[in-house]
Amino acid sequence: MTEPSPAKPTRERIAAAVGWSLLIPGLAHFLADRKRDALIWFLTCQLLLVVGLTLAGNTQFDFGRPFGFGDSTLIYLQIPEGANFLTTQILARVYPSIEIGGTTPEHLPWRHLGYLLSAASGVLAMFCAAHAAGQAIVRSEILHPAAEKPRWHPGQAALATLIFPGLGHWMTGRRFKAVALAIAIFGLFVLGLILGEFGDLDRQRHPYYWVGQMLLGLPAWLISLATSGVRYTGVPPYIDAGLLFTTSAGFFNVIAALDAFHRAETDWLSKTPGPYLASQAKAEEPKSKAEESKAEASA
């Protein structure tokens, strides 16, 4: 049986919602007349970015790269903050890194928290886009009146994965998958931490790996904060494997979020008029056949 898919106008609304959200987090919610959600998303993402940049003296921009022609910069490639696109572009032009003035980040006691907050802003902006896409589905695909409304929409299921791997599946009733994903992803992350002697989560030491690690969401953010003071006295023998594992766990969590979104979307679409009536007819089919045979027997 083929899975139901959103209608073309819904798909266009999803694409627009993702685009607007990545430009300014909350804009898609605002355009969809969800003003409260829009304000929460906008303020959360912007505050995290501004506070994060302030705490780290804008040294986040040292990990980015200006991209353009000659001396003119078209875009500032900054991962993961760049998912909060417009504000990152403006701030990258207005506030240079303090390292340009000769100060190093080591003089900033709260730089690790700053890196974490600005990264959370970017990752949340990505998931804001998923949330807006979920709302676009809910708004456009009207449920059959007799169908029971799913408790969570696809965007919420994807967002829950950021709180803990597998939580989005747990919320939509897929308990086995939730536990399997939590063990596989978080287990890999913890194993990576042990191999890296709890020093893997450091933007200054491993900036590229760090971007992937941040995609694991809240657990990685908290562990990053807790282990920010870890210093190496030598190179751990399995540090490469540790970095690979923790970064892969972050990317695996994105796969889990995409799956949570897709499964919740299927749940929703299966309750729209066409698929819902088809499933009802299929459910009644064996019953009617049994009734027919009973009637034949009595005759």
Binding site: H169, K177, A180, L181, I183, A184, I185, G187, L188, L191, L244, F245, S248, A249, F252, I255, A256, L258, D259
Partner: peptide, 13 residues
Amino acid sequence: CFSASLGVVLSCY
């Protein structure tokens, strides 16, 4: 360990 984790995530997907 890595293969097992990868296998589980891909199969869940």
